[in-house]
């Protein structure tokens, strides 16, 4: 857990209040600071009272994360997030400026969900035997509820496949898998891995398949029909994929756009966070 990067993002007043181990922080203007240490959620206390988050605290975090320049993060902000060093993702909500479905800006950001990524090296070592056969990468889907450990597992799959010598390409739309900072991955994705970031998944799939000749493309959180079609298109082109979708179980994908995608997969890994995030509940292999 990269607390150095986290503390460089937060207001100075937070330093003495926070524990050493933090997985997630919730900042809501006028509400107590809420923290998850990997085991339990608790309100951060200042003396005997909970610390109440101010508008200035939220503005400070957004200012730091954007390099004090709204123009550099507007594209991500309207999708609801900004990424900070080390793959820290800051989810942003508040009063948005929109026209129909198109969001132009977040006028008054009032809530932030700050999530710190963790690296669990070796997490995919057992799984990789089912996914990589020689130079063939079997199409894999990870099914997990939010905060279930999808991204960590995908990063490990990328690293393990890369170590096995496959040319792996990671589409890191939210800079969470590889935590790219100034073009360079700051989290380990292995020796033969290319990372594309700052571009939509649909566009990135096209760019990678047509220009990078990857053995496998790995990406996180497939959402909506466009992205499903982009994945199916890459699979049709003969590229192996490893993707993740949000769901509690495979059954929950029934009658959704993700059902046909799941049916096309060679391996489906279901994660559960009942005991701990990243726990593999089920592996479904296509015969």
């Amino acid at each position: 857990m990269d607390t150095d990067n986290l503390f460089s993002l937060l207001p100075l007043t937070f330093y003495p209040l926070l524990p050493d181990k933090i997985s997630e922080l919730r900042m809501r203007v006028g509400k107590p600071l809420y923290c998850f240490d990997g085991g339990k959620w608790f309100f951060v206390r200042e003396g005997d009272k909970p610390y109440v988050v101010t508008g200035g605290d939220v503005a400070h975090v957004l200012g730091r994360a954007s390099g004090y320049s709204l123009y550099s993060v507007t594209d991500n902000l309207v999708k609801g997030f900004i990424t900070w060093k080390g793959g820290i993702r800051i989810g942003v909500t508040g009063e948005c400026v929109s026209d129909g479905d198109a969001v132009f800006n977040v006028k008054y950001p009032t809530s932030l969900a700050i999530r710190i990524p963790c690296e669990i090296k070796g997490q995919a070592d057992e799984l990789i035997g089912k996914i990589v056969e020689g130079r063939k990468f079997r199409n894999t889907m990870i099914v997990s509820p939010p905060a279930g450990g999808k991204t960590t597992l995908l990063r490990e799959i990328a690293r393990a496949a890369s170590v096995k010598g496959l040319n792996v390409a990671v589409i890191d739309e939210r800079s969470e898998i590889a935590a790219v900072c100034k073009g360079e991955p700051t989290l380990d994705t292995g020796p033969s891995c290319d990372v594309i970031t700052g571009v939509s998944k649909t566009r990135a799939f096209e760019m990678l398949v047509r220009s990078m000749n990857p053995d496998a493309v790995i990406t996180d959180e497939i959402y909506g029909e466009k992205e499903v079609n982009a994945v199916l298109d890459a699979m049709r082109a003969g590229v192996g994929v490893a993707i993740s979708v949000h769901a509690e179980t495979v059954g929950a994908l029934k009658d959704t756009v993700y059902e046909k995608l799941q049916k096309a997969m060679d391996v489906t890994v279901v994660l559960s966070k009942k005991k701990r995030p990243g726990e593999i509940a089920e592996i479904i292999e296509k015969c």
């Binding site: 954007s66 390099g67 004090y68 320049s69 709204l70 123009y71 507007t74 132009f104 800006n105």
Partner: peptide, 10 residues
Amino acid sequence: ALGKSDLENE
């Protein structure tokens, strides 16, 4: 005013 608006307005 620096950095306070989106790219076009900036």
